[in-house]
C-alpha cells in the first residue's frame, strides 16, 4: 500500500540535525519505506530513514513537502510522521 501525504514543516532554521534526527529515528520504526519529497523547481527526495540524506535536502519552512510511505504500515506512518513534522523546529 502506498500512501502520500502533503506535510508542513515550520522550523525557521531549516531541517537541520535535530529535526532530521528525530524524523529519521521515528521513520525507522515503520516497516514501510518512507520517502520525503521536496517539490518545486529543483525537486529533491530522500530516504526518510537516512539522516544525512534528509539534511542534504536543505529543507526550508516554506518548502512544499510530501511524505510517501509504501508498505503494510504506510497509513500510520504517514499520519504519525505528518503530525511529528508539524511540531519539529
Amino acid at each position: 500500500m502506498e500512501i502520500q501525504e502533503k506535510v508542513s514543516f515550520n522550523g525557521k532554521n531549516g531541517f537541520h540535525a535535530r529535526p532530521a534526527g528525530i524524523f529519521s529515528k521515528k521513520a525507522k520504526t515503520y516497516s514501510s519505506s518512507i520517502t520525503l519529497v521536496k517539490a518545486g523547481e529543483t525537486p529533491k527526495e530522500a530516504d526518510g530513514k537516512k539522516l544525512i540524506q534528509l539534511m542534504k535536502m536543505d529543507i526550508k519552512d516554506t518548502d512544499e513537502l510530501y511524505i510517501i510511505a509504501n508498505g503494510d504500515d504506510a497509513k500510520e506512518a504517514c499520519a504519525e510522521l505528518k503530525e511529528l513534522m508539524k511540531g519539529l523546529s
Binding site: A17, R18, A20, G21, I22, K25, L51
Partner: peptide, 11 residues
Amino acid sequence: PDPAFAERMVG
C-alpha cells in the same frame, strides 16, 4: 547540552 545529541537522536 542538547537533547538531540544527548539522546542519540542524530547518532
